[in-house]
Amino acid sequence: MTFNDDADISKGRASRRAGAGLALGGGGLGIVGIIVLIVSLTTGVDLGPALGGLDGGSQAGGDQGIDSALDQCQTGADANRDLDCRMKGAAASLEDYWSGQVQGYRGTAVQLFSGSVNTGCGGASSAVGPFYCPADEIVYIDTAFFDELRDRFGSSGGPLAQLYVVAHEWGHHIQNITGQMQGLDTSRTGPDSDGVRLELQADCYAGAWVGAQESTLDDNGVPFLEPITAAELADALSAAAAVGDDHIQESVQGQVNPETWTHGASAQRQTWFQAGRTGGPGSCDTFSIPGSRL
Rank of each mutant, 00 (worst) to 15 (best):
T2H: 14
F3G: 10
F3S: 04
N4Q: 06
D5L: 00
D6P: 04
A7P: 05
D8W: 11
S10A: 15
S10Q: 10
R13P: 04
G19F: 06
L22H: 11
L22S: 07
A23Q: 00
G27H: 01
G28F: 09
G30R: 02
I31Q: 12
I31T: 14
V32S: 08
I35V: 04
I35A: 06
I35E: 07
I35M: 01
V36D: 08
V39I: 11
V39D: 05
S40K: 12
S40E: 13
S40I: 10
L41G: 15
G44T: 08
D46R: 13
L47Q: 01
A50L: 14
G53W: 00
L54N: 04
D55Q: 03
G57C: 14
S58T: 05
Q59R: 12
Q59T: 10
G61F: 08
G65V: 13
I66W: 03
L70E: 07
T75G: 08
A79M: 01
L83V: 15
L83R: 13
A90R: 02
S93V: 02
L94F: 05
E95Q: 13
V102T: 12
V102H: 05
R106D: 06
S114L: 01
S116P: 01
V117W: 02
N118Q: 15
T119E: 00
G120E: 05
S125M: 03
V128R: 02
V128W: 02
P134D: 04
A135N: 12
V139M: 10
V139P: 09
V139K: 03
Y140P: 09
D142C: 00
T143N: 01
F145Q: 03
D147G: 14
L149K: 05
R152P: 10
G157P: 14
G157W: 12
G157A: 13
G157T: 14
L160Y: 13
A161Y: 05
Q162D: 11
W170D: 05
H173F: 01
N176E: 15
I177H: 15
Q180E: 11
Q180I: 07
Q180G: 14
M181C: 03
M181Q: 13
G183F: 14
D185A: 08
S187G: 13
R188V: 12
T189L: 01
T189P: 03
G195M: 11
R197I: 12
L200V: 11
Q201H: 04
D203K: 11
Y205M: 13
A206L: 12
G211C: 10
Q213P: 00
E214N: 15
S215W: 00
G221E: 08
V222M: 08
E226S: 09
I228W: 02
I228T: 07
I228H: 01
T229E: 07
E232Q: 07
A236D: 10
A239F: 06
A241Q: 08
A241G: 06
A242F: 10
A242C: 11
Q253S: 12
G254Y: 09
P258N: 01
E259V: 00
T262S: 10
H263T: 10
H263N: 04
A265D: 15
S266K: 11
Q268I: 03
R269E: 08
R269H: 13
Q270F: 04
T271W: 04
Q274A: 06
Q274W: 02
A275H: 06
R277Q: 09
T278L: 08
T278G: 02
T278H: 07
P281F: 05
G282F: 02
T286Y: 00
T286V: 03
L294N: 03
